[in-house]
Amino acid sequence: MRRLLWLPPPGVVVLIAGLMWLVRRWSGGLAFAGQGWVALLVLAAGLALMAAAAWQLARAHTTVLPFHPEQASHLVTTGIFRRSRNPIYLGDLLLLLAWALWLGSLFNLLLLGLFVLYMNRVQIAAEERALARKFGPAYLGYCARVRRWL
Rank of each mutant, 00 (worst) to 15 (best):
M50F: 04
G113L: 10
A52T: 14
I124V: 14
R147F: 00
A72N: 12
A100K: 01
M119C: 04
W21N: 11
V116K: 03
F32H: 10
A130M: 11
L7F: 09
L15K: 05
P69N: 11
L4V: 11
A54C: 10
G136D: 06
V42P: 01
Y139P: 06
T78K: 14
L5P: 00
W55A: 15
A126W: 00
G113I: 03
A144M: 00
Q56M: 13
L40I: 08
R25L: 15
S105N: 15
L112Q: 07
A58F: 05
S105R: 06
H68N: 13
Q56P: 05
G104E: 06
G11P: 02
L109E: 00
L96M: 08
L101Y: 03
N86F: 08
V13F: 09
P87L: 09
F67L: 15
G113S: 05
A58V: 08
L19V: 11
N108C: 14
A130D: 03
L95W: 10
A98C: 06
L112W: 04
W55K: 06
P69I: 10
R85E: 10
R2F: 09
L97F: 01
C143E: 12
L4E: 13
L41A: 15
L109M: 01
V116H: 04
A31T: 13
L90H: 03
F135H: 01
W99M: 07
V42N: 11
A53I: 08
L96A: 05
L47N: 02
L93V: 05
E70F: 09
